[in-house]
Protein backbone atom coordinates (compact mmCIF):
# COMPACT_ATOMS: atom_id res chain seq x y z
CA UNK A 1 0.00 0.00 0.00
CA UNK A 2 2.74 2.41 1.02
CA UNK A 3 4.91 1.72 -2.00
CA UNK A 4 1.96 2.26 -4.32
CA UNK A 5 1.33 5.68 -2.76
CA UNK A 6 4.98 6.60 -3.19
CA UNK A 7 4.86 5.53 -6.82
CA UNK A 8 1.66 7.51 -7.39
CA UNK A 9 3.20 10.66 -5.92
CA UNK A 10 6.33 10.13 -8.00
CA UNK A 11 4.20 9.96 -11.15
CA UNK A 12 2.01 12.93 -10.25
CA UNK A 13 4.72 15.25 -8.93
CA UNK A 14 7.75 14.37 -11.06
CA UNK A 15 6.98 12.24 -14.10
CA UNK A 16 3.95 14.08 -15.50
CA UNK A 17 5.38 17.62 -15.18
CA UNK A 18 8.61 16.30 -16.74
CA UNK A 19 6.67 14.79 -19.65
CA UNK A 20 4.79 18.03 -20.19
CA UNK A 21 7.99 20.11 -19.94
CA UNK A 22 9.86 17.96 -22.48
CA UNK A 23 6.78 17.48 -24.66
CA UNK A 24 6.22 21.20 -25.18
CA UNK A 25 9.71 21.36 -26.63
CA UNK A 26 8.94 18.66 -29.21
CA UNK A 27 8.41 19.97 -32.72
CA UNK A 28 4.99 19.88 -34.35
CA UNK A 29 1.61 19.28 -32.83
CA UNK A 30 2.37 16.76 -30.12
CA UNK A 31 -0.58 17.45 -27.82
CA UNK A 32 -2.23 14.13 -28.49
CA UNK A 33 0.92 12.11 -27.99
CA UNK A 34 1.64 14.00 -24.79
CA UNK A 35 -1.85 13.56 -23.44
CA UNK A 36 -1.87 9.83 -24.19
CA UNK A 37 1.50 9.51 -22.45
CA UNK A 38 0.17 11.31 -19.37
CA UNK A 39 -2.90 9.04 -19.29
CA UNK A 40 -0.66 5.97 -19.48
CA UNK A 41 1.52 7.38 -16.70
CA UNK A 42 -1.53 7.77 -14.47
CA UNK A 43 -2.58 4.19 -15.18
CA UNK A 44 0.85 2.70 -14.51
CA UNK A 45 1.11 2.90 -10.68
CA UNK A 46 -2.35 1.39 -10.20
CA UNK A 47 -1.72 -1.42 -12.65
CA UNK A 48 1.77 -2.15 -11.38
CA UNK A 49 0.57 -2.33 -7.77
CA UNK A 50 -2.15 -4.76 -8.79
CA UNK A 51 0.36 -6.80 -10.76
CA UNK A 52 3.00 -6.87 -8.03
CA UNK A 53 0.47 -7.71 -5.31
CA UNK A 54 -0.27 -11.01 -7.10
CA UNK A 55 -3.94 -11.11 -6.11
CA UNK A 56 -5.37 -14.46 -5.06
CA UNK A 57 -7.63 -16.23 -7.61
CA UNK A 58 -10.78 -15.22 -5.70
CA UNK A 59 -9.96 -11.56 -5.83
CA UNK A 60 -8.96 -11.84 -9.48
CA UNK A 61 -12.27 -13.56 -10.30
CA UNK A 62 -14.26 -10.87 -8.45
CA UNK A 63 -12.46 -8.03 -10.22
CA UNK A 64 -13.01 -9.81 -13.54
CA UNK A 65 -16.76 -10.19 -12.88
CA UNK A 66 -17.11 -6.54 -11.88
CA UNK A 67 -15.16 -5.33 -14.93
CA UNK A 68 -17.24 -7.55 -17.19
CA UNK A 69 -20.33 -6.07 -15.52
CA UNK A 70 -19.04 -2.59 -16.34
CA UNK A 71 -18.51 -3.67 -19.94
CA UNK A 72 -22.03 -5.10 -20.13
CA UNK A 73 -23.50 -1.95 -18.61
CA UNK A 74 -21.89 -0.07 -21.50
CA UNK A 75 -22.30 -2.54 -24.37
CA UNK A 76 -25.53 -4.24 -23.36
CA UNK A 77 -27.78 -1.28 -22.52
CA UNK A 78 -29.36 -0.26 -25.84
CA UNK A 79 -29.99 3.45 -25.12
CA UNK A 80 -27.06 5.62 -26.30
CA UNK A 81 -25.32 7.71 -23.60
CA UNK A 82 -27.85 6.59 -21.00
CA UNK A 83 -25.88 3.83 -19.36
CA UNK A 84 -25.36 2.95 -15.71
CA UNK A 85 -21.64 2.27 -16.33
CA UNK A 86 -20.34 4.80 -13.82
CA UNK A 87 -22.79 3.65 -11.15
CA UNK A 88 -21.40 0.13 -11.39
CA UNK A 89 -17.82 1.41 -11.18
CA UNK A 90 -18.66 3.61 -8.21
CA UNK A 91 -20.24 0.72 -6.31
CA UNK A 92 -17.19 -1.48 -7.04
CA UNK A 93 -14.98 1.25 -5.64
CA UNK A 94 -17.12 1.57 -2.52
CA UNK A 95 -17.34 -2.17 -1.90
CA UNK A 96 -13.78 -3.20 -2.78
CA UNK A 97 -11.72 -0.08 -2.08
CA UNK A 98 -10.20 2.72 -4.19
CA UNK A 99 -7.32 0.76 -5.79
CA UNK A 100 -9.54 -2.12 -6.88
CA UNK A 101 -12.20 0.34 -8.00
CA UNK A 102 -9.68 2.01 -10.28
CA UNK A 103 -8.64 -1.31 -11.80
CA UNK A 104 -12.30 -2.34 -12.31
CA UNK A 105 -13.08 0.93 -14.11
CA UNK A 106 -9.97 0.95 -16.27
CA UNK A 107 -10.25 -2.71 -17.25
CA UNK A 108 -13.98 -2.29 -17.90
CA UNK A 109 -13.16 0.53 -20.32
CA UNK A 110 -10.47 -1.54 -22.05
CA UNK A 111 -12.76 -4.56 -22.24
CA UNK A 112 -15.67 -2.62 -23.72
CA UNK A 113 -13.33 -1.10 -26.31
CA UNK A 114 -12.68 -4.62 -27.58
CA UNK A 115 -16.36 -4.62 -28.52
CA UNK A 116 -16.73 -0.98 -29.62
CA UNK A 117 -13.29 -0.77 -31.21
CA UNK A 118 -10.06 0.62 -29.79
CA UNK A 119 -9.08 4.13 -30.72
CA UNK A 120 -6.81 7.00 -29.81
CA UNK A 121 -9.19 7.65 -26.91
CA UNK A 122 -8.63 4.29 -25.18
CA UNK A 123 -5.95 5.38 -22.65
CA UNK A 124 -8.03 8.42 -21.69
CA UNK A 125 -11.16 6.37 -21.30
CA UNK A 126 -9.36 3.87 -19.09
CA UNK A 127 -8.09 6.67 -16.90
CA UNK A 128 -11.46 8.44 -16.64
CA UNK A 129 -13.39 5.25 -15.78
CA UNK A 130 -10.69 4.32 -13.29
CA UNK A 131 -10.92 7.71 -11.59
CA UNK A 132 -14.63 7.09 -10.91
CA UNK A 133 -13.80 3.89 -9.00
CA UNK A 134 -10.99 5.63 -7.18
CA UNK A 135 -13.21 8.54 -6.13
CA UNK A 136 -15.93 6.17 -4.94
CA UNK A 137 -13.49 4.17 -2.86
CA UNK A 138 -11.91 7.25 -1.32
CA UNK A 139 -15.10 9.18 -0.61
CA UNK A 140 -17.00 6.29 0.99
CA UNK A 141 -14.17 4.55 2.85
CA UNK A 142 -14.63 3.40 6.44
CA UNK A 143 -15.14 6.34 8.77
CA UNK A 144 -15.88 8.81 6.00
CA UNK A 145 -18.56 11.44 6.73
CA UNK A 146 -20.38 10.32 3.56
CA UNK A 147 -22.93 7.65 4.42
CA UNK A 148 -23.51 4.74 2.10
CA UNK A 149 -27.13 5.78 1.48
CA UNK A 150 -28.96 5.78 -1.85
CA UNK A 151 -29.32 9.55 -2.01
CA UNK A 152 -25.71 10.27 -0.99
CA UNK A 153 -24.25 7.82 -3.50
CA UNK A 154 -26.59 9.03 -6.25
CA UNK A 155 -25.70 12.70 -5.74
CA UNK A 156 -22.01 11.85 -5.48
CA UNK A 157 -22.06 9.80 -8.69
CA UNK A 158 -23.98 12.48 -10.58
CA UNK A 159 -21.58 15.21 -9.45
CA UNK A 160 -18.50 13.14 -10.22
CA UNK A 161 -19.83 12.24 -13.67
CA UNK A 162 -20.71 15.79 -14.67
CA UNK A 163 -17.75 17.55 -13.07
CA UNK A 164 -14.86 15.06 -13.21
CA UNK A 165 -15.24 11.95 -15.35
CA UNK A 166 -17.26 13.50 -18.19
CA UNK A 167 -14.85 16.43 -18.64
CA UNK A 168 -11.91 13.99 -18.49
CA UNK A 169 -13.46 12.10 -21.40
CA UNK A 170 -14.08 15.36 -23.27
CA UNK A 171 -10.43 16.28 -22.74
CA UNK A 172 -9.39 13.39 -24.96
CA UNK A 173 -11.42 14.83 -27.84
CA UNK A 174 -9.84 18.23 -27.15
CA UNK A 175 -6.36 16.79 -27.67
CA UNK A 176 -7.40 14.73 -30.67
CA UNK A 177 -9.25 17.39 -32.67
CA UNK A 178 -8.16 20.90 -31.63
CA UNK A 179 -5.41 22.64 -33.59
CA UNK A 180 -4.49 25.54 -31.32
CA UNK A 181 -4.94 25.15 -27.59
CA UNK A 182 -6.68 28.15 -26.06
CA UNK A 183 -9.62 28.54 -23.73
CA UNK A 184 -11.95 29.89 -26.40
CA UNK A 185 -11.18 26.87 -28.63
CA UNK A 186 -11.55 24.28 -25.91
CA UNK A 187 -14.72 25.61 -24.33
CA UNK A 188 -17.07 24.66 -27.23
CA UNK A 189 -15.94 21.03 -26.98
CA UNK A 190 -16.66 20.91 -23.24
CA UNK A 191 -20.00 22.60 -23.81
CA UNK A 192 -20.97 20.14 -26.55
CA UNK A 193 -19.95 17.27 -24.26
CA UNK A 194 -22.09 18.61 -21.41
CA UNK A 195 -25.51 17.19 -22.46
CA UNK A 196 -23.99 13.73 -22.90
CA UNK A 197 -22.38 13.90 -19.46
CA UNK A 198 -25.67 15.13 -18.05
CA UNK A 199 -27.72 12.21 -19.41
CA UNK A 200 -25.04 9.78 -18.21
CA UNK A 201 -25.15 11.44 -14.81
CA UNK A 202 -28.95 11.28 -14.65
CA UNK A 203 -28.93 7.59 -15.57
CA UNK A 204 -26.38 6.83 -12.85
CA UNK A 205 -28.31 9.00 -10.38
CA UNK A 206 -31.53 7.08 -11.03
CA UNK A 207 -29.80 3.70 -10.84
CA UNK A 208 -28.19 4.47 -7.50
CA UNK A 209 -31.23 6.28 -6.13
CA UNK A 210 -33.39 3.22 -6.76
CA UNK A 211 -31.03 0.31 -6.29
CA UNK A 212 -27.72 1.61 -4.88
CA UNK A 213 -27.97 0.17 -1.37
CA UNK A 214 -29.45 -3.09 -2.65
CA UNK A 215 -26.54 -3.76 -5.03
CA UNK A 216 -23.97 -2.65 -2.49
CA UNK A 217 -25.43 -5.02 0.08
CA UNK A 218 -25.23 -7.80 -2.47
CA UNK A 219 -21.56 -7.11 -3.11
CA UNK A 220 -20.79 -6.95 0.59
CA UNK A 221 -22.63 -10.20 1.21
CA UNK A 222 -20.79 -12.10 -1.53
CA UNK A 223 -17.52 -10.62 -0.32
CA UNK A 224 -18.18 -11.95 3.18
CA UNK A 225 -19.72 -15.25 2.12
CA UNK A 226 -16.88 -16.41 -0.10
CA UNK A 227 -14.03 -14.40 1.40
CA UNK A 228 -13.61 -12.84 -2.02
CA UNK A 229 -11.06 -10.19 -1.17
CA UNK A 230 -9.05 -12.18 1.37
CA UNK A 231 -5.47 -13.06 0.55
CA UNK A 232 -5.54 -16.55 1.95
CA UNK A 233 -8.66 -17.73 0.11
CA UNK A 234 -10.30 -18.25 3.49
CA UNK A 235 -9.38 -21.94 3.49
Amino acid sequence: MKRSRAMLYFVLVILIPLTLYLGIRLPGRSYYLLSALVAVEVLTPFFMTFEKRKPAPRELATVAVMSAFVTIARVGVPIPSFKPTFAVILLSGIAFGPETGFVVGAMGALGSDFFYGQGPFTPWQMMAYGVMGLLGGLAFREGSPLKRKNIVMAVFCFTATVLVVGPLLDTSSVFITISVLSWENILPLYISGFPVNLTQGVCCFLTLMLFGEAILEKLERVKLQYGMMEDTDGV
Binding site: F47, A61, V63, A64, V65, A68, M107, G111, F114
Partner: peptide, 17 residues
Amino acid sequence: TLSMLLTMILRLVPNMM
Protein backbone atom coordinates in the same frame (compact mmCIF):
# COMPACT_ATOMS: atom_id res chain seq x y z
CA THR B 1 -1.93 -10.91 -13.84
CA LEU B 2 -3.49 -8.10 -15.84
CA SER B 3 -3.44 -10.18 -19.03
CA MET B 4 -5.18 -12.97 -17.14
CA LEU B 5 -7.72 -10.43 -15.91
CA LEU B 6 -8.37 -9.22 -19.45
CA THR B 7 -8.81 -12.80 -20.69
CA MET B 8 -11.30 -13.46 -17.93
CA ILE B 9 -13.24 -10.26 -18.72
CA LEU B 10 -13.40 -11.01 -22.43
CA ARG B 11 -14.67 -14.49 -21.69
CA LEU B 12 -17.16 -13.29 -19.09
CA VAL B 13 -18.91 -10.74 -21.31
CA PRO B 14 -20.54 -13.22 -23.76
CA ASN B 15 -21.02 -15.65 -20.87
CA MET B 16 -22.92 -13.03 -18.84
CA MET B 17 -24.96 -12.01 -21.89
